[in-house]
Simulated scan of single mutants.
Amino acid sequence: MCYRIIIVDDHKLFVNGLQALFLGAPKIRVIGCFTNGRDVLHFLENGNDPDLIILDLDMPILDGFQLLPIMNRRYPKIRSLIISSHDSKDTIEHCKKVGACGFISKTQTFKTLKKVIIDVLEGREYFEVAPQKVRHLKSQNLTQKLADIYQLSVREQEILKMILGQMETKEIAHKLHLSPLTVKTHRRRIFNKLNVHNIAGLVALIKEHPEL
């Protein structure tokens, strides 16, 4: 089976990159590229029947947010994958509500993108959590586990979370409205409770305990 896809994005370099990605791919054929939603609708009204539309959100003349609900209403069998640099939680949730089958950030690699496209074509959904959000969630979970094990105070948890987020002492002090000296004192107490001497020791502790 050969899947037919159309690409809708007003950035030519990105579109060219996507087309190059599928050259020689046995399962995928690009049957159209467009820079706005209005031309997509004209294409579909002329009887063309793609399996998937790869869609950016920012475009002139009927953008992705406007096109998605129209597609969902008129052409419900055509699956849609959003590829955008606007990867906030609210944006992703809105895309879900108006009918998208998937969302992936433009910061991802073409290798990952190709896999996601195949997943969506085969009936699965994929809604990416932005990389920075993933790191934040991991940091939150790790901090809570360390706090439970080593009895860290609320302030110590707060500072540890920032340390795990690779923030420097001055950054932490500014963020929490504390003096750098106070932050250094909290940092020393945290390391003492965890029985480590520095960041390298903290990393080693985490690696030694995969359950964290």
Results as ranks from 00 to 15, higher is better:
R74Y: 12
P180W: 05
K184M: 14
S153P: 04
H197P: 13
I5R: 03
G47M: 00
L57G: 07
Q151C: 07
R189S: 11
H186C: 07
I83K: 03
I53G: 01
D90Q: 11
N195E: 05
G17N: 03
E93Q: 11
E156Q: 05
L23G: 06
A100V: 11
N48D: 02
F43P: 00
E168A: 10
C2S: 13
E168M: 10
P50A: 05
T112G: 10
D148G: 03
I70V: 14
R73Y: 14
T91R: 10
V98K: 07
K96G: 08
D51V: 09
G64P: 09
L113K: 08
L113R: 11
G165N: 11
I117C: 08
F110P: 04
K170T: 12
E158W: 06
Q151K: 06
D90S: 12
G102C: 14
T143C: 03
P210Y: 07
I28W: 01
K175M: 11
P180D: 05
S139K: 14
F103P: 00
Q151W: 08
L41A: 05
A173N: 02
T112L: 12
E168G: 09
L62W: 10
K77G: 10
H94V: 13
L41W: 04
L113E: 04
I6S: 01
F34D: 05
V183E: 00
Y75D: 10
L44M: 02
E122H: 15
L181H: 15
Y126W: 09
H136Y: 12
R188D: 05
V40D: 00
L13F: 08
I163N: 03
H186T: 08
D63V: 11
G165F: 10
H94P: 08
A130M: 07
D90P: 07
L160Q: 02
R79V: 14
P210H: 06
G17D: 06
I92S: 04
V134P: 03
T143G: 01
L160I: 08
H86Y: 08
L44T: 01
V98S: 09
R38F: 13
L121K: 07
I61D: 15
R124Q: 15
L55P: 01
A130R: 02
R38L: 13
D9E: 06
E122G: 13
N48F: 02
I61Q: 14
G123D: 12
P76G: 13
L57M: 06
G201A: 06
